[in-house]
């Protein structure tokens, strides 16, 4: 009898599901402490704000899963926001401006991917170098200053701030993108090969998996999505912000690493990342709503990340059961 209770507990509190419990606890905690937090409007704002970060790190999720690293995404987002603002300021339509920002932003991804596959740079160094290029170019656009915009295109405005059935459009769009990504991840050879590369590169290469093509495309994809979120940031702040990236660095990576704790225990995956993004968003928002200084949030996030990794690694070794 005792055994079966224990089994049930083990299923509920597997490391695999622990993140969902953390999310639930966080929501309950903040709701009980802050009236402002539990208002519907605010909860929707939480979902909206998690949209941008989720979009930004979708590509990073796959890059980390394939055994590489990308830390250039926040700088590329900053670049795209400045580029969009510059183009709009110069009289281009929003659509065209976004197109230019995104298509040039992708180039950073190709550059990282090429440096890593062709010149055998460690991914960390390649993306540090490429990230610093992006950051610098973003600053050059307006001498290190933000570039403010007067008008925002209504359709982009709708994506960023609009609601359908009371739910933020941005969140809906991101969820759809994530569902498509989840399908790609689990039902196409691309997803299969990406995990193969991450788990045993020798075996993957022996099986004839096209490492270079996959790695370059993922870095390009990551840069593309970072650029798209940069465009959305420009719309949401009504300005290009050259240093906006910095604030997404920790949150972005925490999202991916937190997400790795569920679904595919220990491996980054898109659904995990989406849940990770919601957690990060709940944390940031809840802390603000409670009037606690925001840096408490970064302490909690950091500790959450380490604890999470420790739980996974140690449970795999059988030290924690």
């Amino acid at each position: 009898m005792q055994g079966s209770v224990k089994n049930k507990l083990e299923i509920i509190f597997r490391p695999n599901t622990i993140l969902l419990w953390i999310l639930l606890l966080l929501v309950l905690f903040f709701s009980s402490r802050s009236v402002a937090f539990r208002s519907v409007d605010n909860l929707m704002e939480v979902l909206r704000s998690c949209g941008i970060i989720a979009l930004m790190v979708l590509g990073v999720t796959w890059i980390v899963a394939s055994g590489e690293t990308d830390i250039s995404f926040p700088e590329i987002a900053g670049y795209a926001s400045m580029m969009t603002a510059l183009m709009v300021k110069n009289g281009l339509t929003w659509g065209l401006a976004a197109g230019i920002a995104i298509s040039t932003g992708v180039l950073y991804g190709f550059l990282s991917g090429t440096l890593i596959t062709r010149f055998r740079f460690p991914a960390l160094i390649a993306t540090i170098a490429v990230g610093s290029l992006a950051k610098s170019i973003a600053n050059m656009i307006n001498k290190g200053q933000p570039l403010y915009l007067m008008n925002i295109d209504p359709s982009i405005q709708f994506i960023v701030y609009g609601k359908v059935f009371g739910i933020p459009v941005l969140f809906l769009v991101v969820v759809i993108i994530y569902l498509i990504a989840a399908w790609i991840q689990d039902h196409t050879t691309t997803g299969q090969h990406l995990y193969a590369l991450g788990e045993n590169r020798t075996a993957a290469l022996e099986a004839g998996i096209k490492e270079k093509r996959i790695i370059i495309s993922f870095f390009a994809l990551s840069a593309l999505l970072a650029s798209v979120s940069g465009v959305l940031l420009a719309a949401s702040f009504s300005s290009g912000q050259p240093r906006i990236g910095g604030s997404f660095f920790i949150d972005g990576l925490t999202t991916v690493f937190l997400g790795a704790m569920i679904i595919k225990a220990g491996k980054p995956n898109v659904i995990g990342t989406l849940i990770g993004a919601v957690i990060i968003s709940v944390l940031s928002n809840g802390i603000t709503m409670m009037g606690v200084p925001y840096y408490i949030g970064s302490i909690i996030k950091g500790l959450l990340m380490i604890t999470g990794v420790a739980v996974i690694v140690l449970s795999r070794k059988g030290i924690i059961k």
């Binding site: 920790i250 925490t254 840096y295 909690i300 996030k301 950091g302 959450l304 990340m305 380490i306």
Partner: peptide, 15 residues
Amino acid sequence: MIVTIGLGSAVYGLA
């Protein structure tokens, strides 16, 4: 990577 980024950001918050 994860440990240093996680601990680093926590310590930075602490600062």
